[in-house]
Amino acid sequence: MPVRRGHVAPQNTFLDTIIRKFEGQSRKFIIANARVENCAVIYCNDGFCELCGYSRAEVMQRPCTCDFLHGPRTQRRAAAQIAQALLGAEERKVEIAFYRKDGSCFLCLVDVVPVKNEDGAVIMFILNFEVVMEKDMVGSPAHDTNHRGPPTSWLAPGRAKTFRLKLPALLALTARESSVRSGGAGGAGAPGAVVVDVDLTPAAPSSESLALDEVTAMDNHVAGLGPAEERRALVGPGSPPRSAPGQLPSPRAHSLNPDASGSSCSLARTRSRESCASVRRASSADDIEAMRAGVLPPPPRHASTGAMHPLRSGLLNSTSDSDLVRYRTISKIPQITLNFVDLKGDPFLASPTSDREIIAPKIKERTHNVTEKVTQVLSLGADVLPEYKLQAPRIHRWTILHYSPFKAVWDWLILLLVIYTAVFTPYSAAFLLKETEEGPPATECGYACQPLAVVDLIVDIMFIVDILINFRTTYVNANEEVVSHPGRIAVHYFKGWFLIDMVAAIPFDLLI
């Protein structure tokens, strides 16, 4: 008679799926529990143990900040960024110097990925580790590398530091407007667009060049630039800015003055950032001319202004700041037409079709709590990747769950009947059967004279019903998954307890 339990259901295979997918890609990662103190490590794979030199037993239950890997060259700011990422709910990448158990130093890129439950609360953290440099290539500990984003994938490793954006290309926007319009339909740009040429040739750093990471940081200074100062900065030398009595002219307006920039070969870094931020506020060169004239017309309804409409929906549905990093990277690809469009465009503009998908598509409701890094690593669709929660398995109709209350009560009843059979069957065979043979035949009273025979008949009927119930009862397979398919249940029961239950259900007393 089957006594099969499996009270692990309803099970959740999400954690096993993450481990299996990460292991298949030869990654070095740990999984931490966000619900406990210090976000203790609950799993670390073999790749991480080989990377740091510690065994799994030495890593388990330690804080996922990996303070046991810190050393003299470990930056405090990087460690603080990892700790801050564990307090938030967004994906974050941090470069930090770690030390192995043998004392060797290596520069590592740590990717902190939160995993949320159905309520939107962070319950786990996945920390992925990628070695960037070994100890002989690690720089000085005073050099802070965590304020910069990861290198873009479309640049060669040897040319990542030679990417320079020439400031004269930004200063000569109005001069290039006529050349853009003359391109017409034969050019790649839309009317009114501004073409910015980027020099990728390796050259020595000069005062006129600005690194790509500095251009990325310009967006942080746009908020500090007032509207009046932006307007004066875009007017140009024809209309000098008016300053109040006793007030000095704005240095932001002076930063885009061609006369002032041409007199000296070098520009201050602050002026460069502010000038680029001011130019980015204009949607095209037409807006710059309109600002000089004193009238700013409404933005025209053409394809170039609607190019950012799908980007707005993608940004609203993005799951991490990696989408913004990807957008900034692609927006700086050289030799393309940049349409400086305000994100607050007309909502009635139709979304044009684009061959290049900048932001990841909208994630469906079932995966809105899973970050983009987890979705990318697992390579699963929205119909396959579940949320991290207890999910009731989908069972067929008329199927009994093996952990249901009805099955528990039924098993206790069958257990009592088995005990009765084990006690009274030998007793009936030894004593009652002998008395029946010696006594007179009682054929007239039937079952009324033999109450134990009636009980034995009921017990046999219950055993037959138990066999039928076992054909529709779920079970737990070797992978700790609840199986509810009727065919698989029948095959599993035939290979197991079916023969024993059938022999126990045969009414031998009635056959004798």
Rank of each mutant, 00 (worst) to 15 (best):
A9N: 09
D16W: 13
T17D: 08
I19S: 02
I19A: 04
K21C: 13
F22Q: 06
E23A: 05
F29P: 01
I31F: 03
N33L: 06
E37L: 09
E37W: 05
V41Y: 01
I42A: 01
Y43F: 13
D46K: 05
L51N: 01
H70S: 05
P72H: 05
R73Y: 15
R76V: 13
A78S: 15
A78W: 01
I82W: 01
Q84V: 05
Q84T: 05
A85Y: 01
A85L: 01
L86S: 01
G88I: 14
Y99R: 01
F106P: 01
V110N: 01
D119L: 10
D119H: 08
A121F: 13
E130V: 11
E130C: 04
V131P: 11
V132P: 15
M133A: 13
K135F: 06
G139V: 13
T145P: 13
H147N: 14
G149H: 06
P150I: 06
W154P: 08
A156Q: 15
R159D: 11
A169H: 15
L170I: 11
V180A: 13
G183M: 07
G184V: 10
A185N: 07
A190H: 06
V198F: 06
L200I: 07
L200A: 15
A203K: 13
E208F: 04
E208G: 05
D213Q: 06
V222E: 13
G224L: 14
E230L: 05
G238D: 15
P241R: 11
R242T: 15
L248Q: 15
D259Q: 03
S266C: 07
A268L: 11
R269V: 07
R271C: 13
S275K: 05
C276D: 14
C276T: 11
A282K: 14
S283L: 14
A285R: 11
D286L: 09
D287N: 14
M291P: 11
L296F: 11
P300C: 07
H309D: 14
S313A: 11
T319N: 09
D321S: 14
S322H: 13
T329Q: 15
I330T: 14
N339G: 12
P347R: 11
S351P: 08
P352R: 09
E357Y: 14
I358A: 07
T367I: 14
H368Q: 07
E372P: 05
V374P: 01
V374Q: 01
V377R: 03
A382Y: 04
